Simulated assay, not measured.
Amino acid sequence: MSQKPSVGQIVHYVSYGTPPREDGVQAYASECRAAIVTEVDTSDTVGLCVLNPTGQFFNRTVTHDEDEKHGGTWHWPERV
């Protein structure tokens, strides 16, 4: 990772989404959400304040995942 996170930076958090129902469909899919870095544990693990349309939540141990972007991880915002 070329850029290192620091407190106050904006990153993307990937939500988990809901578990698949019996028909295999998720009620809510995994999505990127805006998040603010609240603490830096290591360059790969940070604490975040995740901003959702319906509120916010805090997570203190979120791992970096720039490639696969699995649920429960963070990555740098895409450049557009």
Rank of each mutant, 00 (worst) to 15 (best):
M1C: 10
Q3M: 04
K4C: 05
K4Q: 04
S6N: 03
V7P: 04
G8R: 06
I10F: 02
I10R: 09
I10M: 06
V11L: 01
Y13A: 04
Y13V: 01
Y16Q: 13
Y16N: 12
G17V: 02
G17P: 07
G17H: 05
G17D: 08
T18G: 14
P19Q: 11
P19V: 08
P20C: 07
R21C: 08
E22N: 13
E22V: 05
D23H: 05
D23Q: 09
G24S: 01
Q26G: 01
Q26M: 08
A27C: 15
A27H: 14
Y28E: 14
A29E: 13
A29Q: 11
S30Y: 06
E31V: 15
C32N: 08
R33I: 14
R33G: 06
A34Y: 06
A34Q: 07
A34C: 08
A35N: 04
A35R: 02
A35D: 04
I36G: 07
I36P: 03
I36R: 10
V40I: 09
V40L: 04
D41Q: 08
D41A: 06
T42L: 01
S43W: 06
D44H: 10
V46C: 03
V46A: 00
G47D: 00
L48W: 01
C49T: 10
N52S: 05
T54G: 09
T54S: 11
G55Q: 10
G55H: 02
Q56R: 07
F58W: 00
N59V: 07
N59M: 03
N59Y: 05
T61V: 06
V62E: 00
T63M: 05
D65M: 04
D65L: 04
D67S: 15
D67Y: 05
E68H: 13
E68Y: 09
K69D: 07
K69N: 14
G71R: 15
G71T: 10
G71M: 09
G71S: 14
G72Y: 12
G72D: 11
G72E: 11
G72K: 13
T73S: 14
H75I: 08
H75V: 07
E78H: 12
E78C: 11
V80Q: 13
V80D: 09
V80I: 15
V80F: 10
